[in-house]
Nucleic acid binder design. Structure first.
Length: 335
DNA sequence: GCCATTTGACCCCC
DNA sequence: GGGGGTCAAATGGC
């Protein structure tokens, strides 16, 4: 059942990301088609799961996207639904949809690896920062072309190296908030040899600074034309959520869904939790939604905001994802 | 003075 | 041994 819920959420996240990317993808039908294929693949598997009780992840004739997504979800499930893996998975969907990051390599690091643990006492560690996500983003077309692309976080450069076999140096960045919040996030930025107009950005470790109730929370930067924000940006909390009013109905893409339906669908959509996560509807919009004016106050809550509420909420003292998956963690740990 | 960047050196690990 | 990741002193901008 957990798999079903995760698959639903995963598919909705894909839909949300596609929705957010629509302004940039309106003139790129191929990418749109791939994104739709990815979403269709997820929901096809969901349908399969609901119909036959098993997920059809391994069929070779299936979409490659589906295979990868399935493997990713299964890995995520296997390791207990870590939020950073979830971020990697969600990033992966952008890759599989062909809308930005091209290569995702969630590196599974076993913390119980004693052979490494013995040497990890050194202050200079390597390869045990958790999960690695590699993305490719377009270099700025104007201004300082040497600056790495914005991704919504603030980074401090701590090194630069000439890389053997590469024409361009690799820059090393760590999260600006590393000292105050012990945020382990790092990234490497390097221009591609064959395409200097493209940066390869390698993210290592996940941000913990935005999960702290006292940590600074920055709004996601505007998405430049032709550039897709990484999931780290997408996971930034909404600017604000207003919990002062209630909502009677919400929208699931174009569908209107009444609370009773949500309540009966799955415990994950417990309405009380949903409200606590900020999903109240009124004035609760992301910056993009607010700017677009598509969903005025006192009207329906779009799926993007709902997903934001589920995935991104920082309005409470605990992380929204943890809220959502806490019950699953308990179940998983009990296995 | 604080903070970010630069850059040579150090050190891990393949 | 060498490539690559990190440290930390020096430097510069605000």
């Amino acid at each position: 059942m957990e798999e079903t819920i995760l698959l639903i959420m995963y598919g909705c996240k894909l839909a949300k990301d596609l929705e957010e990317s629509l302004p940039n993808l309106a003139t790129q039908p191929d990418i749109l088609r791939k994104s739709c294929d990815g979403i269709i693949g997820v929901f096809s598997n969901l349908k399969e799961l609901l119909s036959h009780g098993n997920i059809n992840f391994g069929e070779p004739h299936e979409l490659q996207q589906t295979d990868n997504i399935g493997a990713g979800i299964q890995e995520w499930l296997r390791t207990g639904g870590n939020i950073y893996q979830a971020m990697d998975l969600l990033n992966a969907q952008a890759v599989l949809g062909g809308i930005g990051p091209e290569i995702i390599q969630p590196v599974d690091v076993d913390p119980s690896d004693s052979s490494r643990a013995s040497s990890s006492q050194s202050k200079r560690r390597r390869k045990d920062d958790g999960y690695t996500t590699v993305t490719r983003v377009a270099a700025p077309q104007m201004g300082n072309l040497d600056l790495p692309p914005e991704d919504g976080y603030t980074w401090r450069k701590y090194g630069q190296k000439e890389i053997f076999g590469s024409k361009y140096p690799r820059s090393y960045y760590r999260c600006t908030h590393q000292k105050f919040y012990q945020c382990p996030a790092k990234k490497q930025v390097q221009r591609l040899n064959h395409d200097p107009s493209t940066f390869e950005v390698t993210y290592r470790g996940g941000h913990t600074c935005h999960m702290s109730s006292t940590a600074p929370s920055t709004a996601a930067p505007p998405v430049e034309q032709g550039m897709i924000p990484p999931i780290a940006t997408m996971l930034q909390p909404p600017l604000s959520y207003n919990n002062s009013s209630s909502v009677n109905t919400t929208h699931w893409l174009s569908m209107e869904i009444k609370p009773s339906v949500l309540e009966s669908t799955s415990p994950i959509f417990d309405m009380q939790m949903f409200r606590e996560l900020g999903g109240t509807g009124s004035s609760s919009t992301t910056a993009g939604t607010l700017a677009s004016g598509r969903f005025p106050d006192n009207q329906a809550l779009p799926v993007a905001d709902m997903a934001n509420a589920m995935f991104n909420s920082s309005s409470s003292s605990t992380n929204g994802m943890e809220n959502i998956f806490s019950f699953m963690d308990d179940k998983w740990n009990a296995r």
